[in-house]
Design a protein around this nucleic acid. Sequence first.
DNA 1: GATTATCATGAACCATGGTTCACGATATTG
DNA 2: CAATATCGTGAACCATGGTTCATGATAATC
Lengths: 186, 186
Amino acid sequence: MSPRADAVRNRQKILDAAREQITRHGPDAGMDEIAAAAGVAVGTLYRHFPNKTDLVTAVIAEHLGHVADDAEAAQARVAAGADPMTEITALVERVLEASATDAAVKAAARTLGAGTADEPAEIRARAAVDALIEAAQRDGDLHPDVTVDDFYLLISSAPIDQPPAVRARWLTLVFPGLTTRGRHSG
Amino acid sequence: MSPRADAVRNRQKILDAAREQITRHGPDAGMDEIAAAAGVAVGTLYRHFPNKTDLVTAVIAEHLGHVADDAEAAQARVAAGADPMTEITALVERVLEASATDAAVKAAARTLGAGTADEPAEIRARAAVDALIEAAQRDGDLHPDVTVDDFYLLISSAPIDQPPAVRARWLTLVFPGLTTRGRHSG
DNA sequence: GATTATCATGAACCATGGTTCACGATATTG
DNA sequence: CAATATCGTGAACCATGGTTCATGATAATC
């Protein structure tokens, strides 16, 4: 038998509700609350996601998918002639913004280790960012020894729970470590 | 009546045990376990610290006290003729190292929402670091617009739960954003 | 040493929240 | 439309862990 249509719909509703609830109330968001927000009973939630960890993992995977899409789009623009460094800067800003809005990533750091390694989305994102980095390095805009891991390290340590002004300041402070040009007095 | 001697001793034993247990087992460290590690009953623990949040806050306050001492010592050395920028760099490395040891404590603080706002130790630390910054700026080693808050922002966003090699790399990437000299390829 | 306020004990209490399960509902297939 | 496997329901379950409190012990004082 093929999967029931309402089941598919419910799965998405749960995923959306989980993202919103976790964003709003942090990792403390209860399974009951998430289920209620999804307009579904707890049992239904557990039918789709055996436990809370799996649910959070799924939410993160979805988020990562969007990041991967974003990175690939940037890569495509570079391939079409856009400036690599400009694309990288903008991508980092967007990802940071998205991560700030979507506190699910924050929940990831706490609830899980870094166990999202084998996600296909992460592999896609890495590949795209890697291409962007190499392009920027060919242009001489990025330090030759900077790697994808460096970006991951910095972004994962970004103060995403801080107000926008603070996050902007953080970017100003951190970015010069990657570029070849020094800092322009911020 | 003056406070009983054993009560004072127990308070310290509890504080030590709390720091160790939380460091070892993360925020999940139970009050029972902490009390057991301190060689004390749970009730005793609760006599000294009304709730878990207060306990964690106290542990952090102690840590902050050490940081403040460290910062003031550095400031004293600078007043005695030492190079400000060297002292700042070394201080940041030491603080980072120390913070890495009880990263779990801070994680627990976040989980519990324990506030450390008006700790006298924090005020001491701020004052000392402020003096160091101004001295380094007079030497032209530090960007003129860098403030204590910037240091706080960076240090509080440091990947203290990562292995030493990763933390070192992080420092390499981040520090150029503060100094006037660019990054030396490394 | 007697007195007493302070302190220590730890079993029990209780709230929280993740998880289960027996039952009813419904979409899908033939 | 009948048959049935899949899905949805939500009250109840239970483990976890922070917190309390009646009771006994002990250090400080006179």
